[in-house]
Amino acid sequence: RTSMTEEYRVPDGMVGLIIGRGGEQINKIQQDSGCKVQISPDSGGLPERSVSLTGAPESVQKAKMMLDDIVSR
């Protein structure tokens, strides 16, 4: 199975929601999608934060859908 890494961007203000209490939400995204999700520690003052998604292409797609779902709330 091919693994890929894709850079994705999320609004900086949503990072807390994506990570969740004690990392609960980000762990759920990783478990449900099978994709490794790494959020860059700092946006460098930019409105968006970089997130790197690593996994099989379908896992990366699923993680993106889950991120979009959180961001659109």
Rank of each mutant, 00 (worst) to 15 (best):
L67A: 03
M65F: 08
C35Q: 01
L46T: 13
M14N: 07
R73V: 10
P41C: 12
M65P: 02
S59M: 06
Q38S: 11
P11T: 07
E7C: 07
E24P: 01
V37C: 08
T54S: 11
P11W: 01
R21C: 13
L46F: 09
P11A: 08
K64Y: 00
V60K: 04
N27M: 10
Q25F: 07
M14P: 00
R9W: 12
G44P: 08
I26S: 01
E6A: 12
Q31A: 09
D69K: 11
D42R: 09
V71G: 05
V15L: 15
S40N: 15
R1C: 10
A56S: 13
K28V: 03
G34K: 04
V51E: 01
N27F: 10
A56H: 14
M4N: 07
R49F: 05
P41W: 05
G22E: 10
A56L: 09
D69H: 07
G16H: 12
M65R: 12
T5A: 05
G34L: 04
K62S: 06
G45D: 09
A63Q: 02
S3L: 15
S43L: 08
I70G: 03
M14V: 09
G22S: 07
L17Y: 07
L17I: 11
M14Y: 06
T54W: 04
Q31E: 10
Q38C: 12
L46R: 13
V10W: 01
D68V: 03
P57G: 03
V37Q: 01
Q25P: 05
V71H: 03
M14I: 13
E24N: 09
P57V: 06
D42Q: 13
R9K: 15
P41I: 12
V15I: 11
K28D: 03
L67W: 00
E6H: 11
I19T: 14
S33E: 01
D69G: 11
R1F: 05
V37E: 01
Q30N: 03
Q31L: 09
R21H: 13
V71W: 06
D69N: 09
V60A: 01
G23F: 05
G55Y: 00
I29L: 08
C35T: 03
L67M: 11
A63F: 00
K28F: 04
T54K: 07
S43F: 04
P47H: 11
R21N: 15
I18T: 05
I26Y: 01
S3M: 15
I19N: 12
V60S: 01
R49D: 04
Q31F: 09
S33R: 00
C35L: 01
K64C: 02
S52T: 15
L53Q: 01
V71T: 12
P57L: 04
L17V: 09
M14K: 12
S3H: 13
S50Q: 08
M65V: 13
Q31H: 13
A63C: 06
I26Q: 04
C35Y: 01
K62V: 08
D12C: 07
S40F: 05
L67E: 02
K36F: 04
G55D: 01
Q25I: 12
S33I: 03
I39C: 07
V37L: 08
K36T: 13
Q61R: 14
G22A: 08
A56K: 07
M65L: 14
R1T: 14
I29F: 01
S72G: 15
I70T: 04
V10S: 02
L53I: 10
K62N: 03
E6P: 02
N27H: 09
I29Y: 00
I19A: 09
S40D: 10
P57T: 04
I29D: 01
P47R: 09
Q30P: 01
T5D: 04
G44N: 15
Q38V: 13
Q30C: 08
S52Y: 15
S50L: 10
Y8A: 03
G23A: 07
V10T: 03
S52D: 04
K64M: 03
T5E: 05
S33Q: 00
I19V: 12
K64G: 01
V60C: 04
S33C: 11
V15C: 06
E24T: 10
Q61K: 14
R49C: 06
G34E: 05
T5V: 07
S50T: 13
L46I: 08
G13I: 11
G22K: 08
A63M: 00
E48T: 13
V71L: 13
G34A: 04
G23S: 07
M66K: 03
L67C: 02
D69W: 04
E48G: 11
M66Q: 05
T2R: 07
V10N: 02
S50K: 14
K64T: 03
E7L: 14
E7G: 03
G45P: 10
S43P: 10
S40E: 13
V15D: 06
K36E: 12
M65G: 12
P11V: 03
M4G: 03
V37F: 01
S52L: 15
V51S: 01
T5F: 04
T5Q: 08
Q61F: 09
G23N: 05
K28M: 10
V51K: 01
R9I: 15
V51C: 06
E48K: 07
K28R: 13
Q61W: 07
I18K: 04
R1N: 15
P57Q: 08
D69C: 08
Y8T: 06
Q61C: 07
Y8W: 13
D69L: 08
